[in-house]
């Protein structure tokens, strides 16, 4: 979903650049609370994994492919602020080293693929966990649904940016329909990769999954409650 140079006019590219800079700035401040000696290496490895997974285009429909965006995955593994930084680092390196995603479109690409996917994907993930039972299966299921939705959400934001600053004279309604349609399919691939990766990390090191932390703490609390409750019946 990397936007090349020339799709978006200069004013809107600059505006998207400003949004991206502001978003990354907020993420840099917020990431400080998410990162420590143990999670900082994990975050670096998560960014590397997102880069690797983005190389793996999978077929979605006749003559069309898609690849992981990774915002939802990174946010669940290492936290939303750090997740934005992970995807942004990947996008920056792709644009600078691999000529993937235009340099003038970097702001657009960070806005759609880093900011949008994390805000929508991680926001939905937290909402779902609020109503679902506190189990590992819920974390995996919520990561799946959140990842599915995050991809068409990025497509919608691209279409909105295109409506504001698109360089070709095309029907925005048709672009929106086509973009959302194909990205719902790509979202299913995104969801499979996200859920499998989150589940795999949960299976071996659940303590390292940022999005599952609230889930593990109540378990510890309940244990403590049982311990304090036990002496009472024996006293009676």
């Amino acid at each position: 979903m990397h936007v090349p140079d020339g799709f978006i006019d200069a004013p809107v590219s600059i505006a998207a650049g400003a949004v991206a800079v502001a978003g990354v700035g907020i993420a840099l401040r917020g990431a400080r609370r998410e990162l420590d000696d143990r999670t900082a290496p994990l975050a670096g490895l998560t960014a590397a994994f997102v880069f690797a997974a983005q190389m793996l285009n999978f077929p979605v429909a006749s003559g069309t492919s898609g690849h992981l965006l990774g915002g939802t995955l990174a946010a669940i593994l290492v936290g939303p602020y750090t997740g934005i930084l992970c995807v942004s680092v990947v996008l920056l390196m792709q644009a600078l080293l691999f000529a993937d995603g235009g340099l003038t479109a970097l702001g657009v690409n960070v806005t759609t693929m880093a900011l949008t996917t994390v805000v929508v994907g991680y926001g939905l993930f937290r909402l779902l966990l609020r109503v679902l039972p506190k189990t590992r299966a819920s974390v995996s299921g919520a990561s799946f649904v959140a990842a599915v939705v995050s991809v068409p959400a990025a497509a919608v934001v691209f279409t909105l940016i295109y409506a504001l600053g698109g360089t070709a004279d095309v029907s925005i309604g048709k672009v929106a329909a086509a973009m959302i349609g194909v990205h719902v399919l790509i979202g299913i691939g995104e969801a499979l990769i996200t859920a499998v990766t989150v589940s795999s990390v949960l299976a071996v090191r659940p303590d390292l999954v940022y999005g599952a932390r609230g889930l593990l703490k109540p378990l510890e609390l309940r244990k403590a409650e049982q311990n304090t409750a036990e002496p009472r019946p024996s006293r009676a």
Binding site: L28, A31, R32, R33, L35, D36, D37, T39, A40, P41, A43, G44, L45, A47, A48, V50, F51, T82, L85, C86, V89, V90, L92, M93, L97
Partner: peptide, 15 residues
Amino acid sequence: VVLLVGGGLFWGVRR
């Protein structure tokens, strides 16, 4: 490269 740049950034930002 992503590991070095990202890891360096996260190590620098960490608490």
